[in-house]
Design a protein around this nucleic acid. Structure first.
Length: 532
RNA sequence: GAGCUCGUAGCUCAGGUGGUAGAGCAACGCCCUUUUAAGGCGUGGGUCCUGGGUUCGAAUCCCAGCGAGCUCACCA
């Protein structure tokens, strides 16, 4: 528990102060404020909301009596008087304590208080010379002691590692951190309002599953002892939610955690919050419309504006651009790297191979080139085996060329069938599916499609994924026989979508790292913390 | 998984080219009855992330490890 002698000594010192506080007739750990069960305190927020507008004269005339509790965030003693700043729910209120108002015992208690202590005060409101709304304390109640030193009062807790590991300190010292999580709650509330008002049913599907299905990712593995059965943490709820649509729950949504056993970055945490929703009788075009409405609604609910400041850009959730994946590749192709492909280069494998094989990839400085990722994708595409699909390579080109430019909300639609085993094909072109992804801030925010509901085709797609798995792609989708059976009972035409909530919160709060929007992000454990 | 950067008091940070550690806040003592990053005087507090190496001498240079941040790769 202690990091140093300093902390150990401070802890002992505070213990002796606690004892002295008890000797003054106060409980060391009382269970309520105010102590009398039939009395209620006023919150700091209420005090500010109700009386911040009053002048010094009005306050003096009314002599408003209040009882307020809070944590001491600043303390300024002045001989036989003193000030302190109480903080409660992220709001602050000053109190003024003077010997002749609180008496010998009360003032002795005031002098035993430290930064971080919780206290309750009763008194009347007034304004100081400098105009600050302040409680003139008449009665002081001790509530709980801070036994450890608070971070520096001006800079707060700046060390990012400590902020994540000791979020409890971050939250009360860095109020902008608190604000992020208040907004996160608003995002969730707004989403639920949005779907509830449109007749969607909120559901919960399993987190622990026999097979990790519904997405391309590596799962976490665990074990159930009584059943002696290996289980996985889910990587997506998708196939369960569609089973529910088969069951006649025509509009469902789930907001819950997914787990993926993959790298950690500013945009990836091993557990993250996903919104998925499904709507019977709708296709991906309907979902595009819905997505636009959803983003605008949530931004307005959370920020009161559709504009969000993120990473130096002003992102406007009030409008969404639309491009096909192929259009985006052509549009964002870097001219300095070489000639861009044209629409017909994506028409079939022969055309595509001709394009990549004749592309002037420089031999020398390939690793240093700023088009490294693009050249890499082209090189891999050149080695296409006969019979292998080109879809994967087109998607790789898209990611290499376009993704980082998609700062304003952009819908990228029409995805290769090869990388979309759960999506319905375009009726006139079986190589492409009715799927889109929504991008903003330079990363993917959501993924949606017209759901594949033909059980025979679905089974075939799963088998193709298994073949990919055989070839060494351990992130290819797993077979789910029961899901195919569910489809065989008849899934109505359905549109479905998933939106990464953490990323949405990042954009709406201007947070550059996903860890800033997750209360307790995963950190490498430290021995020190394990033992105590 | 790779590269770059960082790790000094409880916190925020200084410590060119090696000479044995400083400031502010916090803490402790004293003064101060309208202050607000309150003020004044004084005091204590450091395995300089860990372990090796080079050197007469390492917070500083080198190597390894641990932890973190950023970028890239994988992915959402």
């Amino acid at each position: 528990m202690f990091d140093s002698e300093f902390e150990r000594n401070l802890f002992e010192l505070r213990r002796s102060k606690l004892k002295q506080i008890e000797e003054l007739g106060q409980a060391a750990y009382p269970n309520r404020f105010p102590a009398a069960q039939d009395e209620a305190a006023t919150s700091v927020a209420e005090v500010r909301a109700q009386w911040d507008g009053k002048t010094a004269e009005e306050l003096e005339a009314e002599r408003l009596q209040v009882s307020v509790a809070g944590r001491i965030m600043a303390i300024r003693a002045q001989g036989k008087a003193g000030f302190a700043t109480l903080q409660q729910e992220g709001q602050r209120l000053q109190i003024y304590v003077r010997l002749d108002a609180v008496g010998e015992q009360g003032f002795a208690l005031y002098k035993l208080l430290d930064l971080g202590d919780h206290i309750g005060v009763s008194g009347y409101l007034f304004r100081t010379r400098t105009g600050e709304l302040t409680v003139h304390v008449e009665k002081l109640a001790f509530l709980a002691k801070a036994m450890l030193a608070l971070p520096e009062k001006y800079h707060g807790l700046a060390d990012v590692e400590l902020r994540y590991r000791q979020r409890y300190v971050d939250l009360f010292t860095n109020l902008e951190s608190r604000e992020v999580f208040v907004k996160r709650a608003k995002v969730l509330r707004a989403l639920r309002t949005f779907f509830d008002s449109r007749g969607y049913l909120e559901v919960e599907t399993p987190m622990m599953v026999a097979a990790a299905t519904g997405a391309a990712a590596r799962p976490f593995k665990t074990h159930h002892n009584a059943l002696d059965q290996d289980l996985y943490l889910r990587i997506a709820p998708e196939l369960y939610l569609k089973r529910l649509v088969v069951g006649g729950l025509d509009r469902v949504y789930e907001i819950n955690r997914n787990f993926r056993n993959e790298g950690v970055s500013t945009q990836h945490n091993p557990e993250f919050t996903m919104l998925e929703f499904y709507q019977a009788y709708a296709n991906y075009q309907d979902l595009m419309q819905l997505t636009e409405e959803l983003l605008e609604f949530v931004a307005l609910e959370v920020n009161g504006t559709t504009i969000a400041e993120f990473n130096g850009a002003q992102i406007d959730f009030g409008k969404v651009e639309k491009l096909t994946m192929r259009e985006a590749i052509i549009k964002f192709w870097p001219g300095q790297a070489g000639p861009a492909p044209t629409q017909i280069d994506f028409d079939n494998a022969r055309r595509f191979l001709y394009f990549v094989q004749n592309y002037p990839v420089p031999e020398d400085d390939r690793e240093e080139s700023k088009f490294k990722e693009l050249f890499h994708a082209i090189e891999i595409a050149r080695e296409i085996q006969t019979g292998e699909s080109i879809g994967k390579h087109i998607a790789a080109l898209f990611e290499a060329v376009a993704e980082e430019h998609l700062i304003q909300p952009t819908i990228i639609y029409e995805f290769p069938t090869a990388i979309s085993p759960l999506s319905k094909q375009k009726p006139d072109d079986l190589d492409w599916v009715e799927r889109f992804e929504i991008y903003a801030g330079g990363f993917e925010l959501g993924n949606a499609f017209s759901e594949l509901n033909d059980p025979i085709e679905q089974k075939k797609r799963f088998e193709e994924q298994l073949a990919e798995r055989e070839r060494g792609d351990d992130e290819a989708h797993q077979m789910d026989e029961d899901y195919v059976r569910a489809l065989a009972y008849g899934l109505p035409p359905t549109g479905g979508e998933g939106i990464g909530i953490d990323r949405l919160v990042m954009l709406l709060t201007g947070s550059k790292s996903i860890r800033d929007v997750i209360l307790f992000p995963l950190m490498r454990s430290r021995d020190q913390e394990l033992e105590s």
